[in-house]
Amino acid sequence: MSVLDIAKGMGVTLSKLFQKPVTVSYPEERVTLQPRFRGRHVLTRHPDTGLEKCIGCSLCAAACPAYAIYVEAAENDPLNPTSPGERYAKVYEINMLRCIFCGLCEEACPTGAVVLGNEFELADYRYGDLVYGKEDMLVGVDGSLPQRREAARTGRPLRRGFRVEGGARPELEGVEYPS
């Protein structure tokens, strides 16, 4: 190793010294995610009718390698349906502690109801709070359970620690992320 090589290396260091740092000081700053980042699930709705896309078929549960999903179906009230057709998910639960965010549930879904969103800030204190139900995942519900709890406690608007490059992907019908 010659002196020249050392100088070369120091030169790289020197040149970087004066660049803008890459490190994002999360959580003070927002992290930028790619649209295909796989985070907390969203249960989407048909945009025109507002009906849930989920028909309670349990195929996501069958596809789940971590056995994280539990579905219980029920008959739609024909006059006041929850989803199109005869069947809807009365109970839809994902255990976020078990979930490995592989996205196989999204692939298995015949109606495109369950889509992996970009939210990743799920950390919470109790096991039971990490089992997300329909009320936590339906489109329109912002943020994770602890974030919503925090927002309600402080009275401040819910704050997400990320932005998505180019916004949410089209599968996440009705979901808006800051870009």
Partner: peptide
């Protein structure tokens, strides 16, 4: 037993 579960469950 309508909609009580899928056969594999």
């Amino acid at each position: 037993a309508r909609f009580r579960g899928r056969n594999w469950e």
